[in-house]
Every structure is written in structure tokens, then in C-alpha cells.
Amino acid sequence: MASTPKKKMKPGTVVMYVVLYTALIFCALVTLVPFAYLFCASLKPSAIFFDNLFLPTGDGLFGIGWEKMNFDHYKRLFSEEGFLRPILNSTFYASVTGVLATLFAATSGYALAKFQFRGRDGITKLVLAALVVPGALLFAPVYQMLYWFGMLDSYTGLIIPALAPAFGVYLFRQATVNSVPNEMLESARIDGCGEIMIFFTFVLPLIRPMMGAFLLLTFLGCWNNFIGAQIVLQTPEKMPLAVAINQLRGVYGTDYGLIMAGTVVSIVPVLALFLLLQKEFLSGLTAGAVKG
């Protein structure tokens, strides 16, 4: 056996490795076990729900009673509870708000970073001040205004007030300052490029990472938004997932299997979306804090 010279680890280093990985793996388990618990719960029939903690015991592989589990809760969710509707509602609401809010934030952030105009400093200060205004302060007056405009119980009333993303404007201002060179804008203008054209063909590609991160952030916020829909919407069929699942629990109180199936259906799409885009998302998330 060809022996390659191997560095011998000092005993102190070994102990450190063990402590380090034990701590990390412990934390990872604490994070992951509730997900597993949730998923197992959604597969157990109500009659035997509390007989076992995770999966029902039995004679099957690994001593688990596989035959006792089924997807009945999921079937019921869609056939009897009409859960497809809230999924579509949430998808519509989160996509439209995400795209429009990102576009509005990007154009404003770009204007604040690269143009000199009257009101620029005022807008910048207002944007920063808005970051510490608690959203709850706006519930009552916005409800009153939506009543005046006749926009209660509609998605217009839910989406439009969400299109003033102060935090987004701040993030895009930073991103534009950091990654869009002035020379490029100037030469594009000399070549006779229109301003709108410049934004879409030259600026957007450069701030794409921030676009991705903010789009995902807004999408998530809407997908998970409960109070906004609870206040603005009234018709049960219009409700997004977060409200629909709470109503489901209101009706079926302790039918945990059904409620957990609904929860799985609600969180799996966003987890999947995040796995696809996680790299852009995490770097965008911290960009504002670390550089700003």
C-alpha cells in the first residue's frame, strides 16, 4: 500500500472538530425535525393520529406500518375543501405584486442613484423614514381609504397599497450606485438611446441579482401575508392560502392530519422556489445591510 504522508491531527484539533460538528448537526436537526414531523402528520389517518409520534408502527419495512398511511388528507383537501382556489389566488396575488413592486422599486432606485432632480433628497429621506413606520399604523386609515375608493374585498385593494416598497427603493438605490457605471449611461445617450430603452436594455441586466432577490422577497411576503388579506378581503372564495388554512382550522379544529396536509401544500412551493434561487436571494438580502 502506497502510504501518502498524512498530517497527524493534534488531539486538540480533533476535539474541536467533534464539538463543532456536534453543535452544527444538533442545530440542523432541531431545524429539520419539525418539517419531518409535519410531513409525517399529514399522512396519518385521523383515527390513529396520536398513536405514534412520527410514523405508525407496524410489520412493514423498518418496523413501520406503511399500509396504515395514505394521501387521503390531500385528496380531501382538494376534492372537498376546494384548496386549489386559494393556491391560485395566492399565486396570482404574489406574482403580480412581486413583479410590479420590483419594477417600481428598481426604476425609483435607479432615478435616485443616477439623476439630479428637484425633490430627490426629499424622496430619499422619506424612503428611509418609512422603514421605521410600523405597518400596523396604516391598517385603519388604509381600510378607510379602500372603502372610499370602493376597493374593499378585491385584489386591487390588496395589491395597489403594496406597490410602495420603501425598503426596495433603498436596496435598488444601493445596487445601482454599486454596479451601474455612469460612462455607460452617457455613451448610450450619445448613441441616441431613449431613457426607457436605456433602463430596460442597459441598467436592468446589471442589477439583475437584486431584481431576483427582491422579487423573491416580495413574492414570499405576499404568499405568507395573512393580516392584509384578512382585513381587505371578505368573500371566502377570494382568500389566499394563509387565510384559507386558518379558516380550515376554524372548521376542523383538531383534525390535525388535514390541517398539516394544507400546511405542507402551502410551504412546499416556496421552499422549492427558494432552493432554485437561493444563491441570488441570500446575497441580495445581505447586500443592503453590509454595504449600506
Partner: peptide, 17 residues
């Protein structure tokens, strides 16, 4: 140009914030 770029955000911000 800058006014057109900030207009959508500023309008919503003024009315709903």
C-alpha cells in the same frame, strides 16, 4: 426622465403611505 422613473412609486407612496 427622472420624474417618469419615480412617478409610479411616488404616487402609490403618497396615496397609500
Amino acid at each position: 426622465a427622472p420624474y417618469v422613473l419615480v412617478a409610479p412609486f411616488v404616487t402609490v407612496f403618497a396615496v397609500f403611505m
